[in-house]
Amino acid sequence: MRAGDLISTDSTASLRLRGDDADLNFAWQVLADVPDPEVPAVSVVDLGIVRSVTWCDDRLYVQVTPTYSGCPATEFIEEMIREALQAAGFVNPQLTQKLDPAWTTDWITAEGREKLRAFGIAPPTGSASKRSLLGESGEVHCPHCDSSNTRQLSEFGSTACKALYRCDDCLEPFDYFKCI
């Protein structure tokens, strides 16, 4: 490929984008392929951390919300989102962090929950009511054998968003995505 091809390819890509519905849908599709770096089975869209995608003054604006305040992946995720959008032809996308309303596991999509389970992580059960936050969590099913005969080993697991569980039927330990 010659330099001229690259330049013309780039300009075609950015000229194509006008910020109409088709472009915004395209942006959502691009984001649906950006994996969470710690749980690569799910995308940032599955996790519900992309809060909005809008177009203003020839630029794409993406609002992202962090899962946990101290999640070390937050900045890395923003960088991955920026790179994916730029590769897809969105020039200089603008990313902003949105704290309010605070992220809740209720925003994890049904598809995302299924992907978590297939990956070996039990998805959050029930909704993030205050009762569930105070420890009255529902049954947690083993992602391997689906048994509900499970128990918590530690409230904090390999990452801030997970707790450590064990299945008393198949005896496998597993991560549970905490309900917040």
């Binding site: 962090p66 946990y68 305040s69 101290g70 999640c71 070390p72 080993l153 530690s154 697991g157």
Partner: peptide, 20 residues
Amino acid sequence: LEEEMALMNVGLDLVGQARN
């Protein structure tokens, strides 16, 4: 090990809150 992960997780949350 479980205690270590719990202490670090709580610490991480707090450092994140401090940043906010």
